[in-house]
């Protein structure tokens, strides 16, 4: 079982590198989706079925939306240029991070033995105090419901912002200068497939 766990972990890392490095955007999106599916199985190994379900469902939604928005665009393979200074500096900082992380993680308690003993109280009293046999739900909607309200507010604000930014009809009238400012090309410059798909 441990071998399978580490194999999935390595699969995740390889898939992420492929998703970054590959040139075709559609292939990159599919690689990211494969990484998400492997991650949900990893959550099952770690004993977190709640997060595994959420991960699978969110991954599917993200895949659909990303494929929908990348395939309709014609320009799916952007040109790539390397910047040696950026790669070198990021490698140096990554090495520094690894060194300091190795030093810092020596002082942490072992996996599954936390310093704070709140979790054991939750596990002992959750069923009698909240009545929910799923301890995760008892924590996030009873003990820590205020956190969940904050999460809901974050989602609400994000949806509101995207609705304002992405709406089709603006309050101002559209003028010629707006079209030039936003950078929307003339009909002759647009790729033919885009116009056909939208009609």
């Amino acid at each position: 079982m441990l071998i399978l766990f580490y194999a999935l972990l390595i699969f995740c890392i390889v898939g992420s590198i492929i998703a970054i490095e590959i040139r075709n955007i559609l292939a990159s999106v599919i690689a990211a989706g494969a990484v998400g599916m492997a991650l949900s199985i990893l959550f099952l190994f770690l004993g977190a079925p709640d997060i595994a379900i959420t991960q699978v469902v969110v991954e599917i939604i993200v895949l659909i939306v990303l494929i929908r928005s990348t395939v309709s665009l014609d320009n799916t393979s952007p040109t790539k240029h390397r910047d040696t200074f950026a790669i070198l500096s990021s490698l140096i900082f990554f090495g520094l991070f690894l060194v300091f992380a190795f030093m810092a993680f020596q002082g942490l308690p072992k996996f599954g033995e936390p310093l704070m003993k709140v979790a054991s109280n939750y596990l002992r009293d959750s069923v009698t105090q909240t009545g929910a046999s799923n301890v995760v739900m008892g924590i996030i909607l009873d003990y820590r419901a205020y956190d969940t309200l904050g999460e809901a507010t974050v989602i609400f604000t994000a949806i509101l912002g995207s609705f304002v930014v992405l709406r089709a009809k603006g309050k101002k009238r559209k003028e010629e200068s707006d079209r030039v400012k936003v950078g929307i090309p003339d009909k002759e410059d647009l790729p033919k497939t885009l116009i056909e798909v939208e009609e």
Binding site: S162, K174, I184, L190, L194
Partner: peptide, 23 residues
Amino acid sequence: SIFAVFLALTIFGRFISDLIASE
């Protein structure tokens, strides 16, 4: 709200062709 975001993205896809049509 997730369905609304999907709708907003498809509305956004229509935006360019709408603009051309109005022109």
